[in-house]
Amino acid sequence: MSTPPPAPTHRAGAASARPARTAEDRSARLAVTVFPALILAAAAFGFFVPSVGQALAEHTSIYLGVIMFAMGLTLTIPDFALVAKRPLPVLIGVVSQYVIMPLVGLGIALLLQLPPELAVGVILVGCAPGGTSSNVIAYLAKADTALSVTMTSISTLLAPLFTPMLTLWLAGSYLPVDAGSMALSIVQMVLIPVLGGLVVRLIAGRLVDRILPALPWVSVAGISLVVIAVVSGSTEAIVSAGAIVLLAVVLHNGLGYLLGYWAARLLRQGERAARTTSVEVGMQNSGLAATLAASAFSPAAALPAAIFSIWHNLSGAMLAMYYRRSADRHPADPA
């Protein structure tokens, strides 16, 4: 969930059945459109006014917790019921998430011979769960929004186990990794807020429905604060290695889209499920990765995640346009 904005709460079937856009839809579409510009502005602010960013840095876990609570507020029980109804595409998406992106991250770190802090940062981005902005991109791409939401939810709930374990396994040769401490941090910053938001939605659903249009902007504000904090502490790394990190991020994100799509197609999934898996695998919760990297390693290690936050929303919007235009070529693909 980078981590912006929560997806539309009506799911793919409902979206295709009724094209009318709710206030939440419009808010999410607008947020995901302007999000890269806001993140660029946040990055510039952190770079040129580092004193403010460093003052914000000690509260990054709180910002992420607010973002994840907002994600929890968008979830409903039917999001998880899809696991029982369509287990195979969900399984393919979640396994691809935790296999493709971590291994691609390691491969890129080796290929580009990244220094240890940046290598760990790239690998940690790959080991993060899916970002909630993938749900909006899936919706705009005419993919399976319900499947996207379920994949994001399941990968997020599994993050306390898989993110530390994979980071230790793949990045431990670069820098020491305290997997136990990382797992505890993910539980505190991700799992508890998400479950808390889900419980509040169950208890006060009508009240939550009234504030849903504002939730994308809560997420945008939260990730902007994370980026300001991360960039302010890694200005030297940006000057010395910004170009190579950008290259690493573009390769990582693009290969995630491509390999996610073909993983689903090779396992005989339909076009819409393949597009969903592509988006879900390529878009990461870079807000979580940045916060973990800054707290467990260094601000420089968080730089790949900060750049990923900007790039994957730009690339996701372009990918959605491509998939949307190609959707008419698959009219028989089931919803």
Rank of each mutant, 00 (worst) to 15 (best):
R26W: 08
A332H: 10
G93V: 09
N313D: 02
G126D: 00
P36D: 07
T60I: 10
P160L: 03
A274I: 11
N285Q: 15
V99F: 15
R324E: 02
P115M: 03
A300V: 10
P129V: 00
L56N: 14
A138Y: 03
V187L: 10
A119W: 04
V220N: 14
L266T: 13
I39W: 03
A320C: 09
P5C: 07
V149P: 03
T33A: 15
L303A: 05
G196K: 14
S181H: 11
F162G: 00
G180K: 10
V250N: 10
V136K: 01
F35N: 01
M318F: 13
N253F: 09
F47V: 00
R275Y: 11
V90F: 03
P6F: 01
R265Y: 15
L267P: 15
I238K: 10
S27M: 11
A305E: 01
L198N: 01
G46R: 12
A300S: 12
A146T: 01
V94H: 08
S286A: 15
G13V: 03
L255V: 12
P78W: 06
F69V: 12
H312E: 06
T3S: 00
S224A: 14
M151H: 00
G197N: 13
G222V: 12
G105D: 00
L140M: 05
H252L: 12
S96F: 06
Q284T: 12
G233D: 07
A237C: 15
S133Q: 15
G46S: 08
L202R: 14
N313E: 02
G260L: 14
A159H: 04
P304F: 00
R206I: 07
P193Q: 13
T163Q: 05
P50K: 02
H330L: 01
L103A: 03
Y261G: 15
I123G: 05
Y261R: 13
